[in-house]
Design a protein around this nucleic acid. Structure first.
Ligand SMILES: [Mn+2]
Ligand SMILES: [Mn+2]
Length: 554
DNA sequence: ACCTTTCACCCAACC
DNA sequence: GTTTCACCCG
DNA sequence: GGTTGGGTGAAACGGGTGAAA
């Protein structure tokens, strides 16, 4: 096996997690020191005043999902004198070795056999774990708590509540954590070595920082709140932060959460409450949902006028398509005048295939009899664009890069992403028009040298050199450029919906094929791409697959 | 790139 | 004994 | 039968381990 070589090729230092943790603290202290609360600053003081050994223990424990541990069960080979370190942390009040705990908190720290032994529960092994816990709690015995406490020293990690603040400041989000460091160092993730913008900050005030923290708190409550019913949902919606006017990313996420909550109010038949909430959201599909609710509840005029409003200033193409089609469909029923728009239906070819793997792969296999076929979905055009405009993606634009673990520049989905990198992008596109051969060489070179490096447009696992070469050879430059323009016009919404397959017939040329199995149909984003292909003469069709019936019927 | 994204698949209601 | 799952790890 | 809306689930680093069933 060669795995031995790959395993040992990257060796992390013994204290890797401590280094990473300190790196985060130090960057945050430097960049955001003025926004930290006295408690967070106090935490830094305490942490730094501990010995390295004790710091390591704290980092280890704070990185785990629970906050309570049994001292005897904690073991890290690189931390000697564990109980010594624990006492040191206890003195600093970074952990507590004498926390006042309830039985409920203690029980999960012991295994089933341990509980049976310690509490002397006869035939306890017949219980399911959850029933055993319930049984012990039911007893309400004073002895239980003391027996458990005597069994082991319990470690309660303190001051952990500050860590999300540090993570948020460092990463700009709460879904990334210290494993980013490890995965990068193990070369599981590769990041471009872009230059960090140290002049601008994502958070300019304590207020803004707390708005983001509050948003995460709300969004974590979302699931259980929805289950509780309409009052809780409305209460949560009122607890949402009001983002600053320029904080577009938070505005968007708060709007999305509003949409989510409003959708659940709809499900619970609270149309009025849902409408109120949708009105406070400026992100699709809030207006679509409102138009649907109006129509469904007989407020015909309001529905039509909202559709009109959407068409005056659609937030995105999907919203416009909805307003047009929804109005068109309902205009007939309500005798309203409406200019119909003729939509073209893509060519459909019917195929009857043997079911083997997936409908896409089976179709690709079928087409490969007279050519070459790749299952690319959204990967091909996006990846080629990403390779072509590599320098644009990682250009040192104001506010684009704030930490080394970004899969994309912070402004990637902003409307002015293209404008702010106009020269880079124009250069790349012009090269493709004027010097297509050099363009191809350069692109293939980027493919090789940047292999695996995170780029929001490049799907490394879905492309290979054979595909790239074939595609660059068979797809005309004009077609590439048309697709690139559409992608760049709305990176968020146009990066999906591309056809499943690209087929290169032996006779030359290429065809984009969307595969549909029995019971499947074109999605809206797929229709929009097909409409686009139609109006620009880009070859495309839909493979409508049905399965050959097996001789022995099921 | 997980606070998600994206797609196929499945079911129900409507004409 | 076996499988499954959540968690932790590098 | 053809349309439409809506809901669900999988899969996103890979491997080891202890607890539960
Ligand atoms: Mn597909
Ligand atoms: Mn398909």
């Amino acid at each position: 096996m060669t795995s031995d070589a790959t395993k040992t090729s990257v060796e992390l230092p013994l204290d890797y997690y401590h280094q990473n943790f300190c790196q985060v603290l130090s960057v945050v202290q430097q960049r955001y020191g003025d926004l930290l609360s006295e408690y967070e600053l106090g935490f830094l003081q305490k942490f730094y005043s501990a010995s390295k050994n004790a710091q390591c223990l704290y980092v280890r424990l704070s990185g785990r999902s629970k906050s309570l541990f049994r001292l005897s069960k904690i073991q890290y080979s690189e931390i000697p004198n564990l109980s010594h370190a624990a006492i040191e942390l206890d003195n600093l009040e970074l952990i507590s070795l004498s926390a006042d705990l309830e039985i409920e908190e203690m029980l999960p720290l012991f295994t089933k056999p341990e509980l049976i032994e310690l509490l002397g529960i006869s035939n306890g092994s017949k219980f399911k774990r959850s029933d055993l816990d319930a049984y012990i709690l039911e007893q309400r015995s004073i002895l239980t708590l003391t027996r458990l406490k005597n069994a082991d020293t319990i470690v309660a990690v303190l001051q952990e509540e500050h860590l999300p603040t540090f993570r948020l400041c460092f990463f700009g989000n709460l879904y990334q954590d210290l494993t980013e460091f490890v995965l990068r160092d193990l070369a599981v993730y590769r990041f471009e070595s872009y230059s960090l913008d140290t002049t601008s900050r994502q958070f300019e005030s304590r207020k803004q920082l707390e708005q983001h923290l509050r948003f995460y708190a709300c969004s974590m409550l979302c699931d259980e709140t929805v289950a509780e019913g309409s009052e809780s949902i409305v209460a949560l919606s009122k607890a949402l932060p009001t983002p600053l006017a320029h904080d577009y990313s938070l505005i968007r996420r708060v709007s999305r959460l509003r949409n989510r909550l409003a959708r659940d109010l709809e499900r619970q038949q609270h149309d009025e409450l849902a409408l109120n909430l949708y009105e406070k959201s400026n992100y699709p599909p809030s207006r679509e949902r409102r138009a649907r609710i109006y129509m469904a509840t007989g407020k015909i005029e309001q529905s039509f006028s909202l559709c009109h409003e959407i068409l005056q200033a659609p937030v995105d193409e999907a919203e416009a398509v909805f307003a047009q089609q929804f109005s068109q469909r309902h205009a007939k029923r309500h005798n309203k005048p409406w200019d119909p728009i003729v939509t073209t239906v893509p060519e459909v070819r019917h195929l009857e295939l043997e079911k083997d793997r997936s409908v896409e792969l089976d179709t690709a296999n079928h087409l490969a009899r007279d050519g070459t076929c790749f299952y690319v979905e959204n990967s091909l055009f996006s990846s080629v664009l990403g390779l072509a405009i590599w320098p644009a993606i990682f250009a040192p634009v104001q506010g684009a890069f704030s930490h080394p673990f970004q899969h994309r520049p912070d402004d990637f989905y902003d409307a002015d992403f293209k404008a702010r990198r106009k020269d880079y992008i124009d250069d790349a596109l012009m090269l493709q028009r004027n010097e297509p051969t050099i363009f191809k060489q350069k692109l293939l070179k980027t493919y090789t040298t940047k292999q695996g490096t995170a780029n929001p447009l490049v799907h490394w696992q879905a492309i290979d050199e054979t595909l790239l070469k074939k595609a660059l050879e068979q797809i005309p430059v004009a077609h590439w450029q048309l697709v690139f323009e559409r992608l760049l016009a709305d990176l968020r919404n146009n990066r999906n919906g591309l056809p499943d397959l690209i087929y290169f017939p032996d006779d030359g040329g290429y065809e984009l094929v969307e595969v549909k199995g029995p019971g499947d149909r074109l999605q809206n984003n797929q229709k929009r791409w097909m409409q686009f292909f139609h109006s620009h003469g880009i070859p495309h069709w839909v493979a409508q697959v049905s399965w050959k019936v097996e001789p022995e019927n099921v």
